[in-house]
Simulated scan of single mutants.
Amino acid sequence: MWTRIKWGIRILLALIVGLFLHYTLPQRDVVQIINTYNRITQIGGNWMFYAIEDTGTGVETATTSRDIRYIDAVFANGKTMTYRNEDTGWFWPPYFKWNSSTLQAEATNAARTPGQWVAVTHYGWRLPIFSIFPNAVSITKVEGPDVTLIPWVNIIILSVLAFVLFMLRKMWLQFRERMVDPALAEVGETFDAAGQRVESARKEARGFFGRIGAWLNTWRAKR
């Protein structure tokens, strides 16, 4: 039972980490941009999937609606995608994006160029039911929809994370070997010694009471 609980916890933690990385790490879509626009967007329970409202404005507000830039695009297979275009500033995710106005101009120019294919680098998810849009980070012109893009950034980040996890596990194993296991062994030896003393005391008590019982039996025999 405990083994199943431990594996359940491990799977849950792995799922949480995987979803976090999938949302945060950059992704690239090869698309054609067909439209750009601004729209007043209501921010409610989905606020965590939007940038902090005063990022890049220098003005602090407390409203639940914002004027957000959007970019409409289409894939080679005809499927569409809508990206939001917000500055991230110094906050999470750490893309340090301050050029949403420039990016909107680049997207508008690509939309006005017939047959122009671009790679849109973004993070986040598109969940229509919650009005969640991926945030575009950069736009790069490409030759066509069949271009091969190698995710070097993700490869480097995941490699570094894997190395860090490997080193942490190695440090933990060394710590457990040097500190935890000897302490547990000492505790176990203490319990074993205590058990042996208890058992010895029981044997002595049985021997003592046994001698008394034998002595009493001799008196009964004399009667």
Score class of each variant (00 low, 15 high):
69 R>N: 13
99 N>F: 03
117 W>L: 01
217 N>F: 11
28 R>K: 07
5 I>Y: 03
181 D>H: 04
43 I>V: 10
156 I>A: 08
210 G>Y: 01
169 R>V: 15
85 N>V: 11
188 G>M: 09
94 P>K: 01
47 W>C: 09
46 N>G: 00
123 Y>W: 13
92 W>D: 06
26 P>Y: 13
125 W>L: 10
146 D>A: 02
174 Q>P: 01
15 L>M: 13
202 R>V: 15
44 G>L: 07
42 Q>T: 11
197 R>T: 10
130 F>C: 06
74 V>T: 13
17 V>P: 12
171 M>D: 13
90 W>V: 15
9 I>S: 06
193 A>P: 09
43 I>N: 00
8 G>F: 04
30 V>P: 14
133 F>H: 09
208 F>S: 09
22 H>C: 05
21 L>A: 13
9 I>P: 15
1 M>H: 11
14 A>N: 08
198 V>M: 14
35 N>H: 12
65 S>I: 11
165 L>F: 15
50 Y>K: 04
152 W>N: 11
37 Y>Q: 06
184 L>Y: 14
73 A>N: 10
99 N>T: 03
101 S>N: 14
44 G>A: 09
181 D>M: 05
90 W>N: 14
194 A>G: 13
116 Q>E: 12
89 G>L: 05
76 A>I: 01
87 D>F: 03
154 N>S: 07
183 A>D: 09
61 T>W: 01
170 K>N: 11
23 Y>A: 07
127 L>K: 03
81 M>A: 08
76 A>Y: 05
99 N>K: 02
209 F>W: 12
215 W>V: 06
40 I>W: 11
11 I>Y: 13
202 R>M: 15
178 R>Y: 10
174 Q>M: 10
107 A>Q: 10
11 I>E: 10
220 R>C: 01
36 T>C: 00
3 T>N: 08
114 P>G: 07
71 I>W: 02
97 K>E: 06
76 A>M: 01
146 D>C: 00
158 L>V: 07
185 A>K: 11
94 P>N: 04
